[in-house]
Nucleic acid binder design. Structure first.
Lengths: 161, 161
DNA sequence: CGCAATTCAATTGCGCACAATCTAATTACG
DNA sequence: CGTAATTAGATTGTGCGCAATTGAATTGCG
């Protein structure tokens, strides 16, 4: 029985549909898994990602966070205000470049990192795979994202030409 | 040099964070890839998924579509109204069970399927992999989703016990 | 210096996601 | 039969995600 790859450049609508549902479902399953774990911390999933970015490097401008997460100011501005209201971050204009708003962790925000370790542990269980498998999955997702992003821009990110 | 899997049940916050960003980024990259392709059809990505479900099987109740996509009525009700306003679907109460609203394709909605084939082709190129690779990716995503969903419920979906 | 182009952030508007609540219809049970 | 429990769908409120616009600050260039 052959695998009849009769359209190498075309997934076919059936498979395309299945891939659609798969990535869509996986992403939502991920956020749904996180939600109950993050609730005790008072964070949503996107807010958690912002906090991770700040735990990795404190005192970043909005733009840098946006680049890291692939979000624009339309999403980040209100999100950061909520984090500020929660007392986790501070927002202050950069003295040298008044266009920029630098986001920094408050004491409370920095302390939250300890609790986040527990979240990571729970996710490890939920994903139900070894570190090696998690690494492999991470790399595949990154590769998928890069292929999609590359196809989308198709200009600036050319490999060598 | 060993791979020191010192916490087999714990991804570690570093890897957890990376996996977070990876799945988040991949999902968004996917929808961003679809967006310009679906715009000519007048569909958003979630609307496209609903249309796929209806192309596969016409005349479904809202509940069935929700189960297929993992969405509730809070999301689907307004979305379906927009599809109705676009003239792609019709909503009518089931005679036998007046609680149900059955969604069916209009002529226009059914005809749109032909154009969707072109979208699938473009995605095939964007994903930049063979049918076999796409199948593998799909299966991994489905497996990931199931592991996450299983961990979340931890009760009803037990494998055998 | 002076003005145009650029950059950063905020705001607005629309469309998901999802929890919580509500109404109406159906089913189950005594 | 009648009431309780269940089910389907809609509605409300909060929080993303993103395009488009706005406004302020900075940079570039003559």
């Amino acid at each position: 029985m052959q695998k009849k790859p009769r359209d190498p450049d075309n997934l076919g609508i059936k498979l395309d549909a299945q891939l659609c549902f798969a990535i869509y479902g996986a992403a939502h399953a991920f956020t749904r898994t996180y939600k109950p774990l993050l609730e005790p911390l008072g964070l949503t999933y996107p807010q958690y990602l912002v906090m991770i970015a700040l735990w990795e490097e404190d005192d970043q401008p909005v733009k840098a966070i946006g680049d890291r997460l692939g979000l624009d100011s339309g999403t980040l501005s209100p999100l950061l205000k909520r984090l500020e209201q929660s007392g986790l971050v501070a927002r202050k204009r950069d003295r040298d470049d008044e266009r920029q708003v630098r986001i920094s962790l408050t004491k409370k925000g920095a302390e939250l990192k300890a609790q986040a370790a527990g979240v990571a542990g729970a996710i490890g269980k939920a994903v139900g795979c070894s570190v090696e498998e998690a690494v492999a999955l991470r790399d595949e997702l990154i590769a998928l994202k890069q292929r999609l992003t590359k196809a989308g821009s198709e200009k600036e990110t050319l490999p060598s030409a």
